[in-house]
Nucleic acid binder design. Structure first.
Lengths: 212, 212
DNA sequence: GTCTATAGCCCGATAGAC
DNA sequence: GTCTATCGGGCTATAGAC
């Protein structure tokens, strides 16, 4: 199964770099160092390859969604930011190139709206934990709006900075800027030390992305 | 020149509906009721057609960017919302299908970052006008962040609701939801009557989109 | 499992008659 | 300006030898 996995991983990287529609099966096989026919042996259709990546994507999301507040709420929120940014980065083409393939695979198509709703709830619970600990001064009834707006800004941050003409590759600071942008939504209501901790966490996430 | 204009307009609608990459020149010619060769006469390359649409797009943006505060700041802000939503709707494929063509045309590619920056400033000045009139209670130093975050949420609202599995065509309420979503950023700091006026304006914009 | 070879299709673009 | 006819190329996918 080693070749099959290498195909999937190489495809993920190439799709992220060049776009799903711009990577032909021939180019992918070449990048894998195998013949094109061999790739067709492992994946009967181009679509089957996309679906395999969709399954990986679904697993990553479900894992991230298990992150619930507990212990230090600041550290918990930093972990959530780290995980969601990694998700956006590792499966960027799935977020970006949706028009290049008719529809997602069954699992992704069926679950995507549900994942977004649960992401809202996840952010709401983490932000609620900060509020409950007295670190975030935010009224309960506006917590859901804050969670939704945070999710949207994190989700589209990289796309937005690309449209602004800034590079979005690793080490360009686009991740950092996206995280700081979402922080502007509520930083002025954070306890000073908490704000500093989150800013420090953001620098760590950016540095980790650079190392990876 | 009537045929040429009809090609451009038909292309705009089809690209918005089906995506730039999904509309072949043959399909476009068929939709225009002309032969494919005739279309090649009017546009030497598929790319030339895209550039023609890019010019229209640039004109629409420059027109929208001329909207400056003056007179009633609430009415002025409502006009801005109306114009920017129309822009997102009329040239949706240019915002959405950027991966389907290598790069934008010269004018769009060169100006896009500048347009975004000026849009930030435009929102900042309109929100500032509301604040200056005592209708929005928002500190001067956080006005720019509010403007940027508003811009981002308006820009990606339709995309987000589509990912949420909701229809985004005309009359589906996606425009309304997008506008209301951006309003959650500062509605709680608006004077009550102003909030009501903006909500009413949003209903008008949604109704107009339905009629058009 | 991996390869070579090739079928079959659709696309963007051209040539040339009217 | 508009048409019909066609070319060359790249792509997904298949057939079959090793």
């Amino acid at each position: 199964m080693r070749t099959k996995d290498r195909i999937v991983e190489t495809a993920r990287v190439l799709f992220n770099e060049q776009g799903y529609g711009a990577v032909s099966v021939a180019a992918l096989a070449s990048a894998c160092g195998i013949a094109e026919g061999n790739l067709w042996y492992h994946f009967k259709t181009r679509r089957a390859l996309l679906d395999a990546l969709g399954e990986r994507f679904a697993d990553a999301i479900e894992t991230r969604l298990t992150l619930v507040p507990g212990g230090d709420p600041v550290a918990g929120y930093a972990r959530l930011l780290d995980a969601i940014i990694a998700e956006f980065r590792d499966f960027r083409f799935l977020y970006r190139d949706q028009r290049s393939y008719g529809e997602h695979g069954e699992r992704v198509a069926a679950q995507a709206p549900n994942w977004i709703e649960r992401t809202y709830l996840q952010f709401e619970s983490h932000l609620g934990a900060l509020a409950a600990a007295g670190l975030l001064d935010w009224p309960q009834e506006r917590l859901r709006d804050l969670a939704i707006n945070s999710t949207i800004i994190l989700r589209y941050g990289l796309d937005h900075y690309r449209e602004l003409g800034e590079p979005t590759g690793t080490g360009t600071g686009a991740v950092r800027r996206t995280l700081l942008r979402h922080l502007t939504l509520f930083e002025y209501r954070l306890e000073v030390g908490t704000a500093a901790q989150l800013r420090a966490a953001i620098e760590v996430i950016e540095a980790e992305a650079l190392a990876a």
